[in-house]
Amino acid sequence: MKTTSRIYTALVFIFLFAPIAILLVFSFNESKSLSVFGGFSIKWYRELLHDEATLESVRNTLLLAVSAMVISTVMGTAAAVGIQKLRSKWLRTALSTATDIPMTNPDIITGISLMLMFVFVGRLFGLANSLSFWTMLIAHVTFCLPYVILQVLPRLRQMDPSLPEAAQDLGCPPLRAFFKVVLPEIRPGIVTGAIMAFTLSLDDFVISYFTSGAGFQTLPVRIYNMTKKTVTPKMYALATIIFFVILALLLISNLTDQNKKKPNQ
């Protein structure tokens, strides 16, 4: 029984990580071939460094991800605080369900609807091409926001509601009481929410594809456009780097979460 479960676990892990392992191996392939490993080399990584257009899209992606993260974290935290403060239970449930909808909505529908809206509003103002960095940013904030709220809201619920009152009672104006007492309590949720927003924005393709303009291209969109021609192992190198960056972020997020939980137990 034990051995079968071990084999099963091994199979699951192989199934999960084989594609990434292959990607990793072939990113170091000397030859261009996908079937033959022609020896170890880092030439694709070097070539990647000289591909200006790709690097530009990497910069764009990061700029977009950081901006979307900051904006959605601030907005999401504020929204969660507002939802938690509502007296009516009915309204509170209704609102948090409503904010969950963008999460359950298929990306393609969110993407198309956002594109339609941007074009429609653009036309209203007589713009020929309304899609730009800003429309993408709005789009990314839209789909990141619910995840931040989802992370912060439970933290607020766990918190003793008399904490902010106690701070005010002891001489803090309400806003200051929030920063001094509430924020430290919900910080783990905010950090996790921010990291989720960052990674979601980083790897989003579908919504970005519909809302990106000609002048501003993110990495996933660029890779997709490149596959229309031929994929060079340069992209494997890039994908490998992205994989490890996201892995690192996930680890950090999990570790901070655990560190915060320990003292309370």
């Binding site: 904490l163 009152e165 106690a166 009672d169 002891l170 104006p173 309400p174 430290p184 003292p263």
Partner: peptide
């Protein structure tokens, strides 16, 4: 007058210690 300006302090039911 908001609570932070009142010369009154409270001991809350569940103590409301600041855990951090």
């Amino acid at each position: 007058m908001p609570p932070h300006k009142r010369n009154v302090n409270t001991v809350f039911q569940k103590y409301a210690m600041f855990p951090h």
